[in-house]
Amino acid sequence: MKLRVAVIIGSTREGRAGEDIGRWFAGVAGRRGELEVDVVDLAGFELPCRYPHEATAEMSRFAERVGAADAFVVVTPEYNRSFPASLKQAIDCAYDEWRAKPVGFVSYGYRSEGLYAVEQLRSVFTELHTVTLRDGVGFSLLETEFGERHGQAARALLDELIWWGLALRDARIARPYVS
């Protein structure tokens, strides 16, 4: 059974670089025969600006996509040394669906390549009982194309994601996760 990986494109900003970066990463992941890749682009969801008392249909649709995945790769920009509000709102639309699954990061920005956003996301995902991966992929928006270093970083991230994804999927099947 293939490992189901959701590649979540976290920016909804017009003119965003995240769509190209996310699609590139999904293409790299899609060449791995043991993976089934689902691109979850937040621009395709109408999530509410205010968190309602009951989940909307769009919130439920997002949570279902999260629940169906065995592992995640979050593609995030860095805005003012953090990640976008659209991504936080989406993350909060699911809760149990994230648990006991690995999360990797592909980030982008200028000098820091989005690393400040990733460090903040690690804290958020730790609270959701995920396993965040050590290695990631970082892009400088000053670069104009995807280079070999990006490909090497993506392969390393995918190797870790597959290991953790399979291990945690087997563990969830053998014994329900406790909170």
Rank of each mutant, 00 (worst) to 15 (best):
M1V: 02
K2S: 15
K2W: 01
L3S: 03
L3I: 00
R4H: 07
I9C: 12
G10H: 02
G10S: 03
G15W: 04
A17D: 13
A17S: 11
G22I: 09
R23C: 12
R23F: 15
W24N: 03
G30Y: 06
R31S: 10
G33C: 09
G33K: 14
L35W: 07
V37H: 12
A43G: 11
G44V: 01
G44S: 13
E46R: 14
L47F: 09
P48M: 06
C49D: 15
R50G: 07
Y51N: 14
P52I: 04
H53A: 12
T56H: 05
A57H: 12
A63M: 05
E64L: 04
V66D: 00
G67H: 09
A69R: 01
D70L: 10
F72M: 04
F72V: 08
V74A: 11
T76V: 11
E78F: 07
N80I: 08
A85K: 09
S86N: 05
K88Y: 05
I91S: 00
D92W: 12
C93V: 05
A94Y: 00
Y95E: 01
Y95V: 00
W98Y: 06
R99D: 02
A100Y: 10
A100R: 13
V103A: 12
S107Y: 06
Y108L: 12
Y110Q: 14
S112A: 14
E113M: 14
Y116I: 10
Y116V: 08
Y116E: 12
A117K: 11
L121K: 06
R122S: 00
T126F: 13
E127A: 15
H129G: 08
H129Q: 12
T130V: 10
T132W: 12
T132F: 09
G136P: 09
G136I: 11
G138L: 02
F139H: 09
F139T: 06
F139C: 09
F139W: 10
E143G: 07
G147S: 11
E148M: 02
H150Y: 01
Q152S: 12
Q152H: 11
A154M: 04
A154Y: 01
A156V: 08
A156D: 06
A156K: 13
L157H: 03
W164S: 08
G165D: 06
L166C: 08
L166Y: 03
A167G: 09
D170N: 08
P176D: 01
V178P: 01
